[in-house]
Amino acid sequence: MRRTIFDTEDLIALRDVARRFATERVAPGYRARETTKSFGADLVREMGALGLIAPELPEAYGGAGASVLCSGVIVEEIARADFNVAYVPMLASLTGQVLAKHAPPALAQEWLPRLTAGEIVLSIALTEPRGGSDAANLGLRMERDGDHFVLNGEKTSISAADQAAACVVFARTGRPEDRARGISAVLVPMDAPGVSTTRFTDMGEHAVGRGSIFFDDVRVPVENLIGEENRGFVQVMQGFDFSRALIGLQCLGVARQSLDETWAHVRERTAFGKPLAAFQGVSHQLAALDTQVEAARLLAMNALWLKDQDLPHTAEAAMSKWWPPLLAFETIHCCLLMHGHAGYSDALPFEQRLRDVLGLQIGDGTANIMKTIVARERAGRTAVG
């Protein structure tokens, strides 16, 4: 196992647990979950029982009060076995942090222990048909009516929309011209009257699923407000730095697995009387990608380490969101080609991995948005716009 500057004995022990679970319980069902289009409720509960879901949350909420590096290690190891199942701990860390930091304590206590136990999945509902990258351009309305909020509108491209027990929903409570300063966040149970969902037919990530959520006079108690009214967007979006670094490791986990399998293949497969690895056109391509994957992994781990130290990490997190998804796609593509005609078939997992990882070049922030964030951090928002 490769060691890094971030590895401690506790982190290595956690990695062993996560890798064993990933190898024995997650990997065998990767192809099957493409058909069932579900994480698998029993598998998620097993993950929770092992403490592999949001261990950075306080013990009061079912976590272990661990470092966020622990969550990075878990996401990376699960992704080696199944890119899609790795979405469960990544999403739980994002939504868990949002509730733990900004929700009323009673609301957090109601939902978070069930999340960390793997009994439920919570999702994030931000994107709308009118805007994806322009995240503050929201049309879904949330109006106060006594001791309830009433929601009307649509969210789209929402991951795990039909598997989530509840969603953190961003809605406009102020004027449209207020942009981000007029948006609030609220936790909406998906079984609330007036909530309905659809599922898209996508190229990949079938086990995660993506779709629209429709809100038709959906009533939610005011106690479900997350953060301050009209400031939920500004407050909650700060947690996305964490998830961006985790997404980087999710993509790199499947890239690393593909590289390890391909190094073994080119060592054993022969052509013209020599192992494929003896041809520099083969080995140098893999060596270059291996170098970049290791560098990108250190970048993402550093972003998490900075968060653990309560230091600024917005730029590093954005870098971890735009580069690793692209690099993972390029790596898996190369590994597929290295396996020749077999790699192009569904007898090997590369074609599914390629389709799965492509989605994160779009979802949760495109590369150009991430680069704009980096530029703002380096040159200043006034200069960049």
Rank of each mutant, 00 (worst) to 15 (best):
L122K: 02
G40P: 00
G96C: 05
D346I: 04
L276Q: 05
E110N: 04
V88C: 03
M1Q: 00
I373S: 09
R378G: 00
A79N: 08
S133D: 11
V44S: 04
N302Q: 14
L289H: 14
P176C: 07
F233T: 01
G340P: 02
D145G: 00
S345N: 02
G51L: 04
A165Y: 01
L94V: 01
F200A: 15
V236S: 08
I53K: 05
T127W: 10
C334R: 09
E229Q: 11
H206Q: 13
P324H: 07
F6E: 01
H313N: 12
G239I: 01
T4H: 08
N224I: 06
C251D: 07
K321Y: 14
E154K: 14
Y344K: 04
L225N: 02
D216Y: 04
V220G: 06
V208I: 15
S320K: 12
R267Q: 02
S320I: 13
L99M: 10
T372C: 05
S283F: 04
A383Q: 05
A171L: 11
M47H: 01
L336W: 03
Q109K: 15
G340H: 03
D145P: 00
E330H: 14
L126P: 09
P193L: 15
T314E: 11
V26T: 00
V169F: 08
L348Y: 04
E177G: 03
L276S: 06
A166E: 04
G62C: 07
T331E: 05
P176V: 12
A22M: 03
S196I: 06
G65M: 02
I373M: 14
P189Q: 12
M370L: 02
Q352W: 11
A207R: 12
R181C: 01
L112S: 07
A108N: 10
E9A: 15
F242A: 03
A278V: 07
A66Q: 15
P325H: 13
T127E: 13
C167F: 14
P193F: 13
G380L: 10
T8W: 14
A264K: 13
L306H: 05
P105W: 05
R130H: 11
G51F: 05
V188N: 11
N84E: 15
I158M: 02
A347P: 00
K321F: 10
V236Q: 10
A342E: 13
A379V: 02
A296N: 08
C335K: 09
K37L: 07
M319S: 01
L122T: 03
V293P: 09
A317P: 01
V75T: 13
P58D: 14
G227I: 06
F242L: 15
A64W: 03
A287V: 00
T156A: 12
M338K: 06
A79M: 13
T331P: 10
E377T: 03
A255I: 10
A125V: 08
T198H: 12
Q238E: 09
V220N: 08
V254H: 11
F214W: 10
V121C: 10
A136Y: 13
N224V: 09
I53D: 01
S159H: 00
D145Q: 12
F83M: 08
